[in-house]
């Protein structure tokens, strides 16, 4: 006889809680990856697509609330930037959806979206990994969110964007001043891609905030999560109106992710920024591989490739989460043995 709670097997609850812990850690650390990991896993477990998508969204919403609160405690959320990003992103998503509907009308949506999605994941992943491993591409920003950003640490593209001084100018955390129109343009562009691809867009927004606007990585993660609270909340509400959110999935996932998100968010203030970028880049590269394998499986009707895709993405998540924990422990030990005080906290 199997033990049950709320009609769900205890083993399934334990599995969901453990999986939530893993996803929450990555979500708090990167500001992305929730629905990327949860929705495909639920679908492979046999849940209907609408239940998997809706429950994934509700989970992402709740986890982003917890991760944002933790980043707020660390002074890593720029609310002004977040509100502007929400405005620009929302407009961009609407235009992106028009483009998607046009492609659907001519029967090219699946192919074009798949190619662009894989290309973007892989391209951004390769770019970030290269920049971080090169060591002079804007890495090594101070972790102190209240401190001024060193001009040498700001990526070249962000410097160019910051040089366009079209009023009104907006002051952001880290002593950055950017034109309102530049922020809205970046937000619109990320929203456009998000709406066109039909994805949350954390993997586009977080790098955009750092590489295009010049926001330090921990603040980029915190502000991105703040934006996800709203997009995830609205998405969950819309799906919940159809009764598609399954609380027996969301509750145990959240029990694990609430802890993982706290650990992941705290780790962004400990781990070196170049390391954060390397892990983010590797996660995106493996994500691109997993999506490509799944799309090939769908296209060629080879079901086993969908399972392979899930194994790749879950394996990547476990690997990167493990690396984040090891890096955090190492950073704490180095801080302890260092004779000078660290700026990490």
């Amino acid at each position: 006889m199997t033990a049950e709670l709320f009609g769900v097997a205890a083993t399934t609850l334990a599995l969901f809680t453990g999986f939530g812990l893993l996803v929450g850690l990555l979500f708090g650390f990167f500001g992305m990856g929730g629905s990327f990991l949860v929705t495909p896993a639920l679908m492979v477990m046999g849940y209907e697509t609408d239940v998997a998508v809706a429950s994934g969204l509700a989970f992402v919403f709740a986890t982003s609330v917890i991760a944002t609160l933790k980043h707020r405690d660390l002074g890593q959320v720029d609310y002004k930037l977040g509100v502007l990003m929400i405005a620009g992103t929302t407009a961009g998503i609407e235009v992106g959806k028009i483009g998607l509907h046009y492609l659907q009308s001519i029967g090219l949506a699946d192919t074009v979206v798949s190619v662009i999605y894989v290309g973007l994941l892989g391209g951004i992943g390769a770019f970030i990994t290269y920049q971080a491993t090169k060591g002079d591409g804007g890495g090594g920003l101070e972790h102190d969110a209240d401190g001024e950003v060193d001009a040498d640490d700001v990526p070249d593209i962000a410097k160019t964007i910051q040089s366009y001084r079209v009023p009104p100018m907006i002051s952001l955390q880290g002593g950055i001043t950017v034109s309102l129109w530049m922020i809205l343009a970046v937000a619109f562009a990320t929203g456009l891609l998000s709406g066109f691809l039909g994805v949350g867009g954390g993997f586009i927004r977080m790098p955009a905030l750092f590489y295009l606007i010049g926001v330090p990585v921990p603040i980029a993660v915190g502000t991105d999560l703040f934006e996800i609270v709203f997009s995830g909340g609205i998405g969950s509400f819309l799906y919940a109106m159809d009764g598609a959110v399954d609380l027996s999935i969301v509750a145990p996932l959240l029990a694990g992710s609430a802890l993982g998100a706290r650990v992941g968010a705290a780790a962004t203030s400990i781990v070196d920024e170049d390391e954060i970028k390397v892990y983010f880049g590797v996660m995106l590269l493996l994500g691109a591989l997993a999506v490509a394998v799944r799309k090939i499986g769908n296209f060629a009707d080879i079901p086993v490739l969908r399972q392979v895709s899930l194994v790749i993405i879950l394996g990547a998540a476990a690997l990167v989460a493990g690396a984040v924990v090891v890096s955090s422990i190492r950073a704490l030990r180095e801080e302890e043995s260092s004779p000078t005080p660290s700026t990490a906290d």
Binding site: A62, V65, F237, A240, G243, D246, L247, V250, L259
Partner: peptide, 25 residues
């Protein structure tokens, strides 16, 4: 509650999820 539909049902479900998040936090 997972089967609740409509605006009230959706508000209840999202509210419960938010409540769980805050309690866990």
């Amino acid at each position: 509650l997972g089967n609740a539909t409509g605006v009230t049902g959706a508000a209840t479900v999202v509210g419960l999820v938010l409540l769980e998040a805050i309690v866990l936090y």
